[in-house]
């Protein structure tokens, strides 16, 4: 019986390289390739359209005194000096609060934490915090910093809110960098009788630092572009002075852009576009620093 089946299949077996249904399938495959390339092209095109349209709108308004002038009701005189300085204040303090705590939490989770339910809860919690909408952080900051701690609409309240917002990102990026440190390096240090903190501070952190820095610079750039939480915790829309302390009022670049782009006049739309160009330039500079750091460290340490 089985011999019969075998012999029959041998007879019917096609021993020439007959194409069968292959041409159709190949055609479909080629069409698919085209679809994929087109989709990717549209995504990239969207980026180009975004940048091009904003630059086109911004071009007439990109003048040097944009950076040094106060905002004004007259578009041709208006500048974003207070917003620029305010943004620097905010990201400076945000970094000051978020980095030590974020790196500390990352060290705890990677090097110290026992494997128990609390640690598991911590990890799930951080992952979920990363997905909380930024405007909700604004409500948190409003309740805790502005109202409860009575910090009002100050730089400090804004920066603390932003610090909580970027904390999950800082922790996740730092953990990745710390995890990339080879275990053999830790073993070597433990093997000569180092304590946990000696191993961490002398070997793990210095080795992981370029990666940590790269991650937190990117986190900072997120803080630079955020608007919604600062609207909630009270960044002012129209500010004609500079903050001189951390309890002062302030505005930030994205806030100023929001304010300008909501005005009906075309001139202010142009100003908003120019503000966006300034914001994007700052972000690009931060990213360039991160890339440079990554490249430099890749050259320095060989494993």
């Amino acid at each position: 019986m089985s011999a019969q089946v075998l012999s029959r299949s041998a007879e019917s077996r096609n021993e020439t390289l007959d194409a069968g249904n292959l041409p159709g399938r190949q055609r479909r495959s080629r069409v698919m390739t085209g679809v994929l390339i087109a989709a990717t092209g549209i995504a990239v095109l969207a980026l180009i359209a975004l940048l091009a349209s904003i630059f086109k709108d911004a071009l007439p308004w990109l003048r040097p005194d944009l950076l040094t002038n106060m905002p004004s009701r007259k578009a041709e005189k208006a500048g974003l000096y207070p917003a620029l300085i305010g943004s620097l204040w905010i990201i400076g303090f945000t970094a000051l609060f978020a980095f030590p705590v974020g790196i500390g939490a990352a060290i705890y989770l990677e090097e110290y934490a026992p494997r128990n339910r609390l640690t598991r809860l911590l990890e799930v919690n951080i992952a979920n915090l990363a997905g909380v909408p930024s405007v909700v952080y604004g409500l948190l900051g409003l309740g805790v910093f502005v109202t409860w701690l009575n910090l009002g609409r100050s730089v400090l309240a804004g920066a603390l809110t932003m610090a909580l917002l970027i904390l999950p990102v800082v922790i996740i990026a730092s953990r990745e960098a710390i995890r990339a440190v080879p275990p053999s390096l830790r073993e070597a240090a433990y093997g000569v009788g180092a304590t946990k903190w000696q191993v961490t501070s002398s070997h793990v952190l210095p080795t992981a630092m370029p990666g940590i820095l790269t991650g937190i610079i990117l986190a900072t750039s997120r803080a630079l572009g955020e608007t919604a939480p600062l609207i909630v915790v009270g960044a002012a829309a129209y500010v004609t002075f500079l903050p001189s302390g951390w309890l002062d009022k302030y505005t930030v670049l994205p806030m100023q852009i929001y304010e300008w782009s909501r005005r009906p006049q075309d001139e202010f739309q142009g100003l908003a576009a120019a503000g966006i160009v300034v914001l994007l330039a700052l972000l690009l500079a931060l990213n360039a620093v991160a890339i440079w750091l990554r490249a430099r460290s890749a050259r320095k340490v060989r494993w």
Partner: peptide, 10 residues
Amino acid sequence: GVPTIVYGFF
């Protein structure tokens, strides 16, 4: 990495 306000303006 582009801030969302930029997409809004776009």
